[in-house]
Write a protein that binds this DNA or RNA. Structure first.
Lengths: 361, 361
DNA sequence: ACGTTAGGATGAAACCTCTCATTCACAATC
DNA sequence: GATTGTGAATGAGAGGTTTCATCCTAACGT
């Protein structure tokens, strides 16, 4: 139904080849023909058929991005950055949502591939073990850049945040306020970045001379119920209640806050709190939540650059593993631990001594 | 580089046509051939070239959705619904962000069209006047369903919320709490839904016998500065300070809260507050924000259904204008006005009488 | 044994574009 | 005036798929 180049050619009184030359801005076409073709395009409201073009040129100038849940504010921010970069390079970005399912993720990759998208940005749904083999089955290797979550030791480009460093920084922040009993609540530890954030927490404690207590490491999931359970058992037990809590991602963090608030605890009075990722509108809700903010826009932007580089240089070029720094944005939810509480508890002495040792080192 | 049907045919020892028949699940192919082809597909890891298929069949089984800002939580929720519906019908959904620019929006529509997408869901960036002509210039009419924001009286399908009704409901809620001086802050009134929400506010006041005060209608934009200015001038003036405020969208509402909080006002103590759209995590922040929640998922889902229907029935079928109901979710931010305040003001009497008349009706 | 039928398989055409080798026209050169 | 050179235009072919008319063959009926 839409007009084709052939019709343009007929109307302009030139050959189809000439029309193509005009459209592709090629040389070797007289001003007179060009004008006639342009006029025809205007008259017929012609729009090139990108499908036919792609088939012929074998290029789509399109990239894809797959995220686990577009509803989580963290991802749209990344998408924005990716979109900008793609546009600047004359590419078009297709956004897809895997809904947290590895199977669906595979399907989507296959789909994008069938669509002859030139490469994809992937925030994997977590099937770390699954992904590699799925990618390998492919005959020709397909350009993929992993974002945010790094699949095991796969031979693949990636753009992530310095998770370990960021977690270490945030933990140190809590320690510098005087906290000794710092709990951590994580999402599923099958995710590489969750592991790394946990590692950062451990490193910070170790270098501060604070013993790591297994009972303060709460590995949960992204589900509210699960998180609540961990928070309750962790906060309600009679002894060794932590004075601070760090969450390794926004979803789990939000769930934890929700749970703790509903238990009647408030922050920073009853506990200090830090979380990865910004919860929307964090900067105006009271109390503001101290958070580890990641350079989301830059992550998306950079990832596209890496992907385009891969596309251009082919499969043989060495892999890039980009790490971007995060920063801790201190707000009201993190403060000094209450002295009274510390004094009424038997673990006070422990707290004191190790706090002392910390400040000396 | 990837294997083609021709190669499959060679490997399986059948013709290309037969391969195609196997793949498209057609009849008229013997079990023996089918098996051979299937085997070849497995061996070669064949994936159909969707581009070539689309070129031939003139179908892409793809829809597009354009939103003004994917970063605003409201839109991803809609996208989720649209995605589900699309998937259920065997369609694929492409998400695009117009970044609030009408020009870019037009470009994107043109792009989707060039990509031979079968139809698009459009949350317009606001160029109500611009859009129709752009769509009309098109030779063949292109299936478009407007979502959330209805372009003027354009001959086009739409799926929106009952904006007027919702605003009326929310305003009535405030009135039922005893508020008489109710302010409203809106986004740009060029947007149709903003207009309608304002209308709902007016209707509620009128039917409650409360005179409409122009000084209580604050038309702002989506910009923080602009909103702050309106809030300050509205709240700080010596007389006629409203006891309640309704915001007609989440972005403006959030900006208003931010501004009012920073002025030292708090809710529901100093003013009651209601806003359209849910601010992320509203259900756990204190105080919880009373909000008008829209059926976002359903909107997206329904819009796809309408779009597919349009695609199927062609351009001549009558237009559909779907209105979905919203609901008011009452939380802590809306409460009774302080009696002291009411009593020190001359407008108290007005408040009393009409409040009484309200409860009687 | 012959004609009919129907299921299976085939090959060419078409979808729309781009590419490239070829032709054409015309001017410049000797 | 014949040859060469140059820029402009052309037309065929290719890209991978689907479709469709055609062809083949084996089975069936009489």
């Amino acid at each position: 139904m839409p007009p084709t180049q052939k019709e343009l050619a007929k109307l302009a009184g030139v050959s189809a080849g000439t029309v193509s030359n005009v459209i592709s801005g090629s040389t070797n076409v007289s001003e007179r023909s060009r004008q006639k073709v342009l006029e025809a395009i205007r008259v017929l409201n012609y729009q090139p058929n990108l499908i036919a073009r792609s088939l012929r040129t074998n290029r789509t100038r399109t990239l894809g991005i797959i995220v686990p849940d577009i509803t989580i504010p963290f991802f749209p921010k990344i998408i924005r950055g990716a979109e900008s970069a793609a546009r600047e390079h004359g590419y078009f970005l297709i956004v897809l949502d895997s809904e947290g399912s590895s199977d669906r993720e595979s399907d989507l990759i296959a789909l994008l591939r069938a669509q002859r998208v030139e490469g994809v940005l992937l925030v994997t749904a977590g099937g770390l073990e699954v992904l590699p083999e799925r990618l390998k089955t492919a005959q020709t290797h397909f350009p993929v850049v992993c974002l945010d979550r790094l699949p095991a030791d796969l031979h693949i480009d990636s753009v992530c945040v310095d998770d370990t460093g960021a977690a270490e920084m945030a933990t140190s922040h809590l320690m510098s306020l005087g906290h000794r009993n710092i709990a951590i609540i994580t999402g599923p530890l099958t995710l590489r970045n969750e592991q790394e954030r946990l590692r950062g927490y451990r490193q910070a404690l170790q270098s501060g001379g604070i013993p790591i207590q297994k009972s303060l490491i709460w590995d949960a999931s992204f589900e509210q119920d699960d998180v609540s359970k961990r928070c309750q058992s962790g906060m309600l037990r009679p002894t060794g209640r932590p004075s601070a809590l760090m969450a390794t991602n926004g979803v789990t963090g939000l769930a934890a806050l929700r749970s703790l608030y509903s238990m009647g605890l408030s922050t920073p009075k009853d506990f200090s709190f830090v979380t990865f990722d910004e919860i929307t509108a964090e900067d105006f809700f009271r109390p503001g939540i101290t958070s580890i903010v990641q350079p989301t826009y830059d992550m998306g932007y950079k990832a596209v650059e890496v992907l385009l580089d891969r596309i251009e240089r082919g499969d043989d070029a060495p892999r890039k593993k980009v790490r971007l720094p995060a920063m801790v944005k201190v707000r009201e939810s993190s403060g000094k631990p209450l002295v009274e509480v510390a004094e009424t508890k038997p673990r006070r002495s422990v707290s004191k001594t190790s706090s002392a040792s910390r400040t000396r080192r």
